[in-house]
Amino acid sequence: MTPASLYALVGVGLIVLGLYALSVHAHLLRKLLAFNVTGSGVFLVLVGLARRTPAAAADPVPQAMVLTGIVVAVAATALAVVLMLRVQATCGRAALNDDLGTLEPLQPPPTPPAGGPAASAGSAEGAPPALTGTTAHAP
């Protein structure tokens, strides 16, 4: 086994690991980490297979693709972070309800009272309550 195929196999492992975590975890930040791990796995497969050249230098075309891919991945991560914070602002928590695959609104209030006032007070002005409402949820 050459180092190229070794790293490509590690990349395959990362893809599978990331996909598993992406589907199993409910918390959105974990899903985001899993998404990033999967992306890294794809990059690793691409660059690993690009290294199979007989010469000293690797194939530059996949490398250029991965280079743009890394920058796009960080942009997607930043967008996902903002979306996640919006989900928390509207639903009170940054997690998906796995049974239905939908967001569970906080309106039928479950047992602990905290979190609710912050969410409703913050979303009225459209500002994320995470920053403005630090005092709101002390019952």
């Binding site: 180092p3 790293y7 690793l44 660059v47 690009a50 290294r51 991965v66 280079l67 890394i70 920058v71």
Partner: peptide, 13 residues
């Protein structure tokens, strides 16, 4: 690992 795969550009990024 990028460094090991001769991908210094990607390692930099």
């Amino acid at each position: 690992i990028w460094a090991r795969l001769d991908a210094a550009d990607i390692a930099l990024a």
